[in-house]
């Protein structure tokens, strides 16, 4: 093992320029990938914030006593999709209308009778805030005897659905394209490292080194470069994020620790796989 580590580090010592080039290439490839990742993460965040406004309102029949509603509320909250269900009485509805609809303040003040019905406002858990689940829950709410009518913004929830699907598809297609380009570029720099050491590989074979023995330092070296490149890419992404966050004041989100770890791990993995395939191909050829 000790020998593998020593031989892996020998590459850095022996070809510092080429090693620096590999690390830089990996770093910039992953940086581009990282920037795209940041856009995706922030887009998801924005979508999530919009999603939070998805709500189903069940209007109650006029004159519904409070007791059956309280029991119904418990049932509704027990739905697997439901995050919270809140009862809004007729008076509360009127008070809210007065506060929110300033233009109609006079009209509302002169009313002799409160025309607004009591309602139950239902919020769904994340992951259920789409047309299919919202419709299903609305359907079930209609089954309660005290519910008169159910409203939810079907149109804009459908739009949200489509936006979400589009964003997901774009993220996957562009993300995979970026990742493939990164893998190709990184693979090329690693192949240069292997070619640069082809004489050494030939000599190792001559004195009876097994392919596994030859391969191991390359794998370690490739993984280390990937790890280093990934870390630099995260640092660059953070710098870019900090600049945007500071000067554009758009309160962007950065990667979570897990996401950052995935990107660095991806770098290490590309380094490892790139080395494995380059060395493997070289060993098979000669």
């Amino acid at each position: 093992m000790n020998l593998v580590v020593r031989e892996a580090f020998r590459t850095f010592k022996r070809a510092p320029l080429l090693s620096a080039l590999s690390v830089t290439t990996i770093a910039f490839s992953l940086f581009v990938l990282g920037l795209f990742g940041l856009v995706v993460v922030n887009l998801q965040d924005a979508l999530r914030r919009v999603e939070e406004r998805v709500e189903i309102v069940a209007y109650l029949l006029p004159g519904t006593p409070i007791e059956p509603v309280t029991i119904g509320l418990k049932d509704i909250e027990a739905f697997p999709e439901v995050q919270a269900a809140t009862y809004v009485s007729e008076d509360q509805a009127l008070a809210r209308a007065r506060a929110e609809l300033v233009e109609f303040r006079d009209v509302l003040r002169e009313l002799e009778r409160n025309p607004l019905p009591a309602s139950v406002e239902v919020k769904l858990k994340p992951g259920f805030r789409d047309t299919e689940h919202v419709s299903a829950v609305a359907e079930r709410l209609l089954g309660f005897g005290f519910v008169d009518d159910v409203r939810f913004g079907r149109d804009w929830i459908e739009k949200l659905d489509r936006l979400r699907q589009l964003a997901g598809a774009v993220a996957i297609v562009v993300g995979v394209a970026f990742a493939v380009v990164a893998v190709i570029i990184i693979g090329t720099t690693i192949r240069m490292t292997v070619l640069q050491r082809s004489r050494e590989i030939a000599i190792m074979r001559l004195v009876g080194a097994t392919d596994g023995f030859i391969r191991r330092p390359f794998l370690l070296q490739g993984a280390l470069k990937g790890l280093l490149g990934g870390t630099v890419a995260i640092a660059l992404s953070f710098a870019a994020y900090a600049v945007v966050d500071r000067y554009l004041e758009i309160h962007a989100t950065f990667f979570s620790y897990e996401q950052a770890a995935v990107i660095i791990g991806f770098g290490a993995l590309i380094g490892l796989i790139g080395s494995a395939t380059s060395v493997g191909r070289h060993l098979r050829r000669v």
Binding site: I203, L206, V207, G208, A209, T210
Partner: peptide, 15 residues
């Protein structure tokens, strides 16, 4: 590789 370890090989260009 096992065969090569039982052979000694030298060349004109030393390697």
């Amino acid at each position: 590789p096992l065969l090569r370890r039982r052979l000694g090989i030298v060349f004109q260009d030393f390697r």
